[in-house]
Design a protein around this nucleic acid. Structure first.
Lengths: 99, 99
DNA sequence: CCAACCCATAGCATCGATGCTATGAGGTGG
DNA sequence: CCACCTCATAGCATCGATGCTATGGGTTGG
């Protein structure tokens, strides 16, 4: 557990850069998606290598993504969703209603 | 209308490239998001230039995005969502239930 | 002790999205 | 005819995500 980044670590990193305010939310989304993929993967009892193979990427790429160290692209998210038997859903939701 | 790309044009373009099957869905999502932003923008009675200013980008970037000529990144989607008073929602949905 | 996994991370090349400027075609109103 | 706006697109520089290989530390099981 101690070697896993948490959200505060990430926020600290990204917010040191200028113009980071705009990407703040994207960074948060990336972090949450990484968490979710990790949970889904563990739910399948898969190692990062197994997921990587299923999603057409390498173990290092999976690790980097799960750790939230980059903001993933839609193609990557799509491939991960497929591998995990999910559907990638991206939309502009109303600002008011529930999460 | 005649100068606007439709989905079949885009699909034709992208599918000519090798390895495009994986990015197919991402391309479709990009196309739909472009459409949606265009509708939202027109709902606000904004020109591409006005939206661009509100989202911290240029008119050409908005045009490129609305036309679905690139697969947008999460930071860009986030900025557009903010400008259009929406919340960007990205998630791994169950494969079975409704859209 | 060692082999075989797990995961995190570094370093690098490549690819593609973005930012930007500039242009052109089209419409509109003077 | 012209000024002004709309949007589409080209060309280029830059930045960052991804793909890849290679480590290294940790754990487990022999």
């Amino acid at each position: 557990m101690s070697d896993r980044l948490d959200w505060n670590d990430l926020r600290e990193r990204r917010m040191t850069e200028p113009g980071a305010a705009e990407t703040y939310e994207a960074t948060r989304i990336a972090f949450e998606l990484g968490q979710e993929v990790r949970h889904l993967r563990e739910g399948h009892d898969w190692s990062q290598s197994q997921l990587a193979r299923a999603a057409g990427m390498t173990q290092s790429a999976v690790a980097r993504f799960e750790a939230g160290r980059t903001v993933p692209t839609l193609p990557v998210l799509e491939r991960l969703a497929r591998a995990l038997d999910r559907r990638l859903d991206v939309r502009f939701a109303s600002n008011v209603d529930a999460a």
